[in-house]
Design a protein around this nucleic acid. Structure first.
Lengths: 173, 173
DNA sequence: CATTATGTATGCATAATGCATATATAATTG
DNA sequence: CAATTATATATGCATTATGCATACATAATG
């Protein structure tokens, strides 16, 4: 029965999201703040609009979010030299530290979830999750959003990246 | 590299959670409301305290949540005959309808995510996700929480249920 | 040069939440 | 059995993240 697998996958997704959420909630940050830190650590030089769509929040809310993060010394605002309207956001050193910490916790949870699989099973599982994830991606903006908490150095082997590259190559033919 | 698999699994969990969330956000319900409906549809006859721990919300917030749901005609309060302090919560007919609708949307998203797998792959995937999920369960309360949005008729084959049964059998020896 | 579009910021109202506390009922203990 | 303690629900209050409407500055367009 496929329904059983659907339930299991849904429950697993929730359990993992909960775990990832719990790994960060201790530090007193709101979900949107954590996602913002994740994105800014992932793709520096974002504007407020970029961030707004990446974390699926209204522009106004994003402005306030950035103001909070700036007040906490995690993010810096600076004017773009190319377009005076734009505000360039960057993580401060402290923001980078927090980003690393959060990433580490997240990876720790995922690693411990995966430790019940043997190397061969991990390889099998990797193939299947890659396929599912790639098929789920709707467009570039969605792909960007999905990667909002990934560990950056590993992005070279990221299935999301691979999928988007492949699609743009196909559509350019 | 295990990091790649960790990233992929994390991204997949987020993407699925987003999808499940998006499938319900259209109907104008807050996350906690949806989770409450899910739980009440899943395990009828819950008290406010039960619900509070199941959805990981303070008691006060849960009281307000239930009041909102009652006002919307989705949930009914009734006094317990065994313990006059307790309030028994039940879904109304309208609440049941909503529950079915939300479940259907959730299952639809999961089904479409899984459709890129062949039957054999689904079987493989099922084995692996079952194993991971079962190992992730911390205690009965956590298991309960993880199942908060599952489709009830399929619970007989639920790995969470199986794991908890097996554990209690083992500890009773 | 005028108009329109884009990017950021702010005033205001809303709504979900937590903490502290109150009240009612059950359980326990002396 | 009376008194205390624990449990379950409810409410007053403050907080806070959010969205909508709007304002302002700058860029792009005609």
């Amino acid at each position: 029965m496929d329904e059983a697998l659907e339930n299991t996958l849904g429950a697993l997704a929730l359990a993992l999201s909960d775990d990832i959420g719990a790994s960060i909630q201790t530090s007193g940050f709101v979900q949107s703040e954590v996602e913002a830190i994740g994105h800014l650590g992932h793709a520096p030089e974002m504007t407020i609009s970029d961030l707004s769509s990446a974390i699926a929040l209204s522009h106004a809310a994003t402005v306030r979010l950035v103001t909070r993060l700036e007040a906490k010394g995690l993010v810096s605002r600076s004017q773009s030299t190319l377009d005076a309207r734009k505000v360039i956001l960057k993580l401060t050193a402290q923001g980078e530290d927090l980003h690393e910490t959060l990433l580490g916790r997240r990876q720790g949870r995922l690693r411990s979830a995966l430790q019940v699989l043997s190397p061969q099973e991990k390889s099998q599982f990797s193939t299947l999750t890659n396929r599912i994830l790639r098929a789920m991606l709707r467009d570039e903006s969605h792909a960007f959003r999905v990667c909002r908490l990934c560990d950056r150095p590993v992005c070279a082997s990221c299935p999301v990246e691979a999928e988007m590259v492949e699609r743009s190559a196909t559509s350019a033919e």
